[in-house]
Each structure stands twice: as structure tokens, then as C-alpha cells.
């Protein structure tokens, strides 16, 4: 493995450390397929998905794991891909919004359509991934548990009530 000082620090740290970057070939398990990427190992998964694999459903919002727009599943756990460096993934399975279901028919996606949740829609892939991971672990969450799980995902359009309603419907239907 290469020496990489950057990855020792939070990716958006104000302290700049010049990196000695060596590109590395990595095999990533994404949406059930193995993808080979040739990138600087300090690259966050978010940018590997968006720039190198053209999986742009995962969104950039803040880059510091504060808004949840970049949420993916890492072995089924909701994870902020903007601060997850590609070198940390190892053999774990990554699922993105594109891989959540074949035809948009995951119970969470169906509930989202049923309630017609989105306004601008930019944050919704992240919201859906967080919700799907929640229901996977806790199929019947209480209101408080939903609020707790979803609190890391910002929606400036203010669709929170519909998100909560859709999570409940998905919970009933899954």
C-alpha cells in the first residue's frame, strides 16, 4: 500500500498535508458487481462512484458527513460515502441508490412514490438509503426511532413529514 498522509486526517481538514499519491488498483463490490478502479486510495467512495463509475445517484452535499446526501450502504449499514476513503472499503459490499432495487420497487422507493415525497429531490437518494438501512435492522421503528435515524439527512425543501410518513408506509409494507 502507498504512503498517504492525507488519509490520516479528516478529508476536509483545513490543515493541508501534501500527499505522496500513488494510484492503486482496487476491486470494489458495488451493487453486486466487482468493479476495478484505479484511483488515489485517499479518494472518498463518493467521488469514485460519481467520477469513475458514473453512478451519480449518490450526491455530494457537504463533504464532511453532515448532510447525508451521499449515503450508501456498507455491508447494509447506512454510511456517508463522502468521508469513507476507497482504501477503507476492503471486501465490504457497497450498495448505492442505483442498486437498491432493479426497477425502483424497493418498499421504501414505492412508499416514496406513494407519498410523493420529493420537492427538489436532491437529498432524496440519501434519505431513501438511510431509511432502507433503518428498516432492514428495525422493521417496525417508532416515530422517535425514525427521527433518530433520519436526523443526519438534511432536506432544505422541508419534506421531513412526508419522509416520516413514507418510512412508516414502507415499514407496514415490507
Amino acid at each position: 500500500m502507498c504512503l498517504n498522509f492525507v488519509s490520516l486526517f479528516p478529508s476536509n481538514s483545513d490543515i493541508f498535508m501534501p500527499s505522496i499519491t500513488i494510484m492503486a488498483k482496487l476491486n470494489l463490490k458495488i451493487n453486486g458487481e466487482v468493479k476495478e478502479v484505479d484511483v488515489d486510495p485517499s479518494t472518498p467512495v463518493l467521488w469514485v462512484l460519481r467520477d469513475h463509475l458514473n453512478l451519480v445517484g449518490t450526491k455530494y452535499g457537504c463533504g464532511i458527513a453532515q448532510c447525508g446526501a451521499c449515503t450508501v450502504h456498507l455491508d447494509g449499514t447506512a454510511t456517508r460515502s463522502c468521508m469513507l476513503t476507497v482504501s477503507m472499503v476492503g471486501n465490504s459490499e457497497i450498495t448505492t441508490i442505483e442498486g437498491l432495487s432493479e426497477n425502483g420497487d424497493h418498499p421504501v422507493q414505492k412508499a416514496w412514490l406513494d407519498v410523493d415525497v420529493p420537492q427538489c429531490g436532491y437529498c432524496q437518494a440519501g434519505q431513501i438509503m438511510t431509511a432502507a438501512a433503518l428498516l432492514d435492522k428495525n422493521p417496525n421503528p417508532s416515530d422517535e426511532e425514525i427521527e433518530m435515524a433520519m436526523n443526519g439527512n438534511i432536506c432544505r425543501c422541508g419534506t421531513y413529514l412526508r419522509i416520516k410518513k413514507a418510512v412508516k408506509i414502507a415499514s407496514e409494507n415490507s
Binding site: 451519480v56 449518490t58 455530494y60 420529493p118 429531490g121 437518494a125
Partner: peptide, 27 residues
Amino acid sequence: QKNVDGMNIVTGKPLFGIDTHQEGMLI
């Protein structure tokens, strides 16, 4: 009536400007 882009939004289709990609594109 439902949002005409609903399905595209919940399946993560490239709808937004930031999703634009063209061959040879630089950042």
C-alpha cells in the same frame, strides 16, 4: 397528480446539473 420525475428521483437517475457527464469532460 404525482410528480412526473418521481421515479427518476427515487432511483437516482442523473437529473441534476452536477450529474452531467460528457466524454473528455474535465472538472
